[in-house]
Simulated assay, not measured.
Amino acid sequence: MQDDLDDAALLRYSRHILLDGVGIEGQRRLRSASALVVGVGGLGAPAALYLAAAGVGRLILVDDDTVELTNLQRQIIHSTAMLGQPKVESARTALAALNPEVEVETLCLRADEAQLAALAARADVILDCSDNFATRHAVNRVAVQQRRPLVSGAAVRFDGQFAVFDPRQVSSPCYRCLFPEEGEASDGPCATFGVFAPLVGVVGSLQAAEALKLLLEMPGVPLGRLLLLDMRDGSWRNLRFRRDPACPVCGEPRQDK
């Protein structure tokens, strides 16, 4: 990865550079940034593609799964040629073809909390694209501990949800403030109930958008809001929630950055 934007990079990112909220300095900031993407399935696929296309300098991808035929209905970063391969390696291949300037680090494992903490310490933003409550809560605890902004998404059937948490801000709630840890911890719901293919694209793209806004320090990040999407009629619900002072994860007093 080059230190500055050459002529090819200026052309590649020209549509971003034209934006008041980005410009050349913003594009340089993206190039020097790193994002941790936990899960490279339905949500992680579009999220990683857009982060790479936008020029985020380093992507750290974590997933212990392999590409299966049932994945290809919605996990657009993978292809038929990659069946049986680790998802992180399949994703690396696709991202290199899209934008060879982006550095992609891959870990084919189900990371425990200590491993996630070490990875989060090297990232500027975390995208939780996992498919089970246990991982989501582990990622949330790590985000709070490491004071890293977290962009969370979920999708099943025709229903999607999306939220952003920023533990650098005193007033920001965390994922545990919104959802208790008691719940289904397996990845069964998608396999059992199905998922509408474009739904994960919408939610994953939103995750990429908010991650980019966080990296660019743009205003308008929807903290303290849970966005719910019903793809049956294309409707959105916007629910506000507050930090829980008694939250076992983020309830201790914090200071703004």
Rank of each mutant, 00 (worst) to 15 (best):
V56E: 04
L72Q: 11
Q73T: 14
G57L: 06
L59A: 10
V62Y: 02
A48R: 06
R58V: 13
G57T: 05
G42W: 03
L43E: 00
G42V: 02
T70P: 04
P46R: 07
R58A: 03
D64S: 14
A45F: 06
L51V: 15
G41V: 03
N71K: 14
G42T: 05
R58P: 04
N71Y: 08
A52Q: 07
V56Q: 08
G42I: 02
D64A: 14
A47V: 12
L43F: 12
Y50I: 03
G44R: 00
G41I: 01
L49D: 04
L49C: 13
L59M: 12
I60N: 02
G42C: 03
V56C: 09
L43P: 02
V67Y: 04
Y50K: 05
A54H: 09
A48H: 05
V67H: 01
T66W: 04
R58T: 15
E68Q: 15
T70H: 15
V62E: 00
A45E: 01
T70F: 10
A45M: 06
L51W: 07
T70S: 15
G41A: 09
A45N: 02
D64N: 14
P46K: 04
V40P: 03
L61T: 13
G44F: 01
L59W: 08
A45V: 07
D63Y: 01
L69M: 15
V56F: 13
G42Q: 02
Y50V: 09
A54D: 09
V40C: 15
L49K: 10
L72V: 12
D65A: 09
G39W: 01
T70G: 04
R58S: 14
R58C: 14
G44N: 11
G39A: 11
A47F: 09
G41H: 05
G55M: 12
L72A: 13
T70K: 11
V67D: 00
L72G: 06
V56Y: 05
L51G: 09
E68H: 11
V40K: 02
Q73C: 05
E68M: 00
A52D: 13
Q73S: 13
A53L: 12
Y50S: 04
D64V: 03
V62L: 09
A47W: 08
V56R: 01
V62K: 00
L49W: 11
G55K: 10
A48Y: 07
D63H: 00
L61A: 11
T66L: 09
D65K: 01
G42Y: 02
D64G: 15
L51Y: 13
D65C: 00
L43N: 09
A48C: 15
A52H: 10
G41P: 00
T70E: 13
I60K: 10
L59V: 13
A45K: 03
L59H: 06
A47M: 14
T70R: 13
A47L: 12
L69N: 02
D63F: 02
